[in-house]
C-alpha cells in the first residue's frame, strides 16, 4: 500500500489531518515523535533535531551549516528506513522534500483556508499576515535544505483547500486517492526508496567529519561526490571509502572528488 506524506501551511492542520488519515486507514503515523529515537541513535539532542526542521543557518555560519546538514541526513535516514515498512502516514518530518521519485509515495498538501474562529474574533487579517510570513520562511528553509520550494503546489499529487473542503471530506478524499493503482507499491518504487534510504545513511556518516558531500545509491552500490584540494584528494577518497564501506547495506563504493579551492572542506 502507498505511503501518504502530508504537509500543510500550518502545523496544527498537518497534524490533525495526518492523524485522522492514519486512523481511517489503520496505518502507522510517522511524526516528529520519532526525534527522541533519532537523537538517541545518533547522540543528538531531539529538541535540536526538531529545530533543524524549522531554522535555516545563516549563509556565513559554516560550522552550524555542516551540523545542520548532518542532522537533516540523520532524520532522512531514519524516516526513509521506516517507510520501507509500508502502510505509513508521514507528517512533520519534511519527507515531501526528500522522498523523490518514489511512485508509491503520495504527497498531499493541505491549505488551511480561512480560520473561522479567527474570523469570528476579527483576527482574520492578522492570521493571514502571519501565514504569509510563515510561508515565506518555509520557502526559504526548503530551498536552503533541499533546493525545492515546498510552497510550490505543482510538487504535490493532491492539494486540498480546507477553506472549501471540510476536514472529514479531506480525509475521505485522501484515503480514496491512496487506493488508486498509480500509487500502489511496485518492485521499482521499493528499490527507489531503499536507494534513498541508503544514500541518506551514508550521507549522515560522512557528514560527521566532512562537508560538501553528495551520495547516490543503486542496489548497494554507492557513488559519492565530494570536494578536496589537490593535496588532500587521495586521503579524502580513502577516508570516504573507509567510512562509507562500513555502512550496512553498502557493497561497492565509487568516489569522485573534484578540486576545491576552499581549504576548510
Amino acid at each position: 500500500m502507498p505511503i501518504i506524506i502530508i504537509s500543510a501551511d500550518a502545523r496544527e492542520t498537518e497534524e490533525g489531518i495526518a492523524e485522522k488519515v492514519a486512523e481511517a486507514m489503520g496505518y502507522t503515523l510517522l511524526s516528529p515523535e520519532i526525534m527522541a529515537e533519532i537523537g538517541t541513535k545518533n547522540h543528538l539532542d531531539p529538541e535540536q533535531l526538531c529545530n533543524e526542521l524549522e531554522a535555516t543557518p545563516h549563509l556565513f555560519q559554516k560550522l552550524l551549516s555542516c551540523q545542520w546538514r548532518h542532522d537533516l541526513a540523520c532524520i532522512e535516514g531514519e524516516v526513509l528506513e521506516r517507510m520501507l515498512a509500508d502502510n505509513i502516514v508521514c507528517q512533520g518530518l519534511c519527507a515531501h522534500l526528500y522522498v523523490l521519485g518514489v511512485s508509491h509515495a503520495m504527497k498531499v498538501r493541505i491549505l488551511s483556508g480561512d480560520d473561522r474562529a479567527a474570523a469570528n474574533q476579527g483576527l482574520l487579517e492578522k492570521t493571514k499576515r502571519d501565514r504569509v510570513v510563515q510561508c515565506r520562511q518555509r520557502k526559504k528553509w526548503s530551498m536552503a535544505a533541499y533546493g525545492n520550494d515546498e510552497t510550490d503546489l505543482s510538487r504535490y499529487d493532491l492539494v486540498i483547500n480546507l477553506g472549501q473542503i471540510d476536514p472529514d471530506e479531506a480525509v475521505k478524499t485522501i484515503t480514496h486517492a491512496a487506493a488508486f493503482r498509480k500509487f500502489q507499491v511496485m518492485t521499482y518504487s521499493i528499490k527507489c526508496l531503499a536507494n534513498l534510504a541508503l544514500s541518506a545513511r551514508v550521507t549522515a556518516v560522512l557528514l560527521e567529519t566532512m562537508s560538501d558531500i553528495r551520495v547516490e545509491s543503486n542496489d548497494g552500490s554507492v557513488v559519492i561526490f565530494g570536494k578536496a584540494s589537490n593535496r588532500n584528494k587521495l586521503s579524502k577518497i580513502t577516508k570516504i571509502k573507509e567510512l562509507a564501506g562500513k555502512v550496512k547495506g553498502v557493497n561497492f563504493v565509487e568516489v569522485h572528488v573534484k578540486r576545491n579551492i576552499n581549504p576548510i572542506s
Binding site: G101, S103, K182, F183, M186, T187, K191, C192
Partner: peptide
C-alpha cells in the same frame, strides 16, 4: 528508462509489477 511518471502510468494502466 524507469522514471516515476512512467512507473505510475504503467501501474495505472494495470501492470502487475514494474522493474528497472
Amino acid at each position: 528508462y524507469a522514471k516515476m511518471d512512467l512507473a505510475r502510468e504503467a501501474m495505472g494502466q494495470g501492470v502487475f509489477d514494474f522493474i528497472a
